Amino acid sequence: MPAPTWSVPTRRAPACPYCHSRTPGKAYLRQCASSCGETATHFPVSAARRGKCPHGRAPKARRVCPACGQPVPREYIEGCPWVVAVVGTAGSGKSTWLASVIRRVAKGHLDDRFPGMSLDVLGERSRLRHERDRVLVAETVLYRDIGTEPLLVSLRVRPRARPVVIAFYDSTDGTAANLAHADGLVLAVEPGAVPGDAGIARLAEAVRTARDLRPHSRIRLPLAVVLTKLDTVWDMVDPGSPLLRPVPRTGGYAVSDGVDVHHETTAWLGHWNRTDLLRGVRTAFHRHRYFATTALGDRVGGRREPMAYRVEDPLLWLLAGFGAIPVFRGVERTTT
């Protein structure tokens, strides 16, 4: 299977994360500071004089979408964001997976592979969403309704490198607007409850409709199929399986390891008689890869929080395809 080398689309005007309207960055509005009181207003960027609002004060850093009036973080507007839609049935582990990925990167657990990598949650609304999601991991609360609020993050792969801005949308079926603007798609499935050909067909049709594609055309939107809750089948996995092999220690995406995990995961799905899923994905999506992860793991050694395992793999695959991190094709050093 080839490395993720899909062509990176020309970056367009950023889509508002709330209404998805595309507006040039300079057309977003500025907002007066609270000190302007009742006279506070929204005004075009071009109306700011020496960086001041019409009242001569420093405005708020965030921007305001002229289409829907929602405040949008400045870093999001200036960062040419990538959009990742995370879909899956209720209880599939999609929300827990996403919360675990964000926590793992933000806590520096990937420093041995990406020295100095950092992650910031952008905007007050995303921070509130992030705090709510953390309960999914810290307290192992599943089946929790988290709403449709996007999670906006700024990921800096290396110190002083240009940040990669990502908007994550988490929903059961993927709303049309999210699918229409997505640059990557993550489908969360769980052992024993994997959607069959009909479920994949519905997802594919939703993507085609949202993106105005021809019926039955093969979709070029990259799809990461994530087999979640690997901890529930640990005892079934052979100790020599690629799923349990030490993670490659590279400063990018290790293709050889990804291919091994892909084939091992597809073998397990075939073992569970989910060939309909495999066939549906292969037929509908031109670019796809399978992953196996656990966001909860085992609470061993007196740990207060679970140890996530390989949850970052799907994100690294997408980042490699976006051109945000290097790709390594050979056998790489590993770390325990």
Score class of each variant (00 low, 15 high):
3 A>S: 12
7 S>D: 09
19 C>W: 08
21 S>M: 06
24 P>Y: 09
39 T>M: 14
41 T>M: 12
48 A>D: 01
50 R>C: 11
51 G>Y: 12
52 K>R: 14
56 G>Y: 00
59 P>T: 02
66 P>C: 04
67 A>S: 15
77 I>M: 09
79 G>Y: 05
83 V>E: 08
86 V>G: 05
87 V>Y: 03
91 G>W: 02
98 L>G: 12
104 R>A: 14
108 G>H: 04
110 L>M: 15
119 L>E: 10
124 E>I: 06
130 H>L: 12
132 R>K: 09
140 T>D: 13
141 V>H: 14
145 D>C: 02
153 V>E: 10
154 S>L: 13
159 P>S: 05
161 A>E: 14
164 V>G: 02
172 T>I: 15
177 A>L: 14
178 N>F: 02
189 V>D: 10
190 E>Q: 11
191 P>V: 06
193 A>T: 07
196 G>H: 05
198 A>Y: 06
198 A>N: 06
200 I>K: 04
202 R>W: 06
212 D>V: 12
213 L>W: 03
218 R>V: 15
221 L>T: 09
221 L>F: 12
222 P>Y: 04
223 L>F: 03
225 V>L: 15
230 L>R: 10
242 P>F: 08
249 R>S: 10
256 S>H: 09
261 V>A: 12
261 V>F: 01
277 L>W: 00
280 G>Q: 09
281 V>W: 03
283 T>V: 05
293 T>L: 07
296 L>T: 08
301 G>W: 02
322 F>A: 15
329 R>M: 05
330 G>T: 13
333 R>C: 03
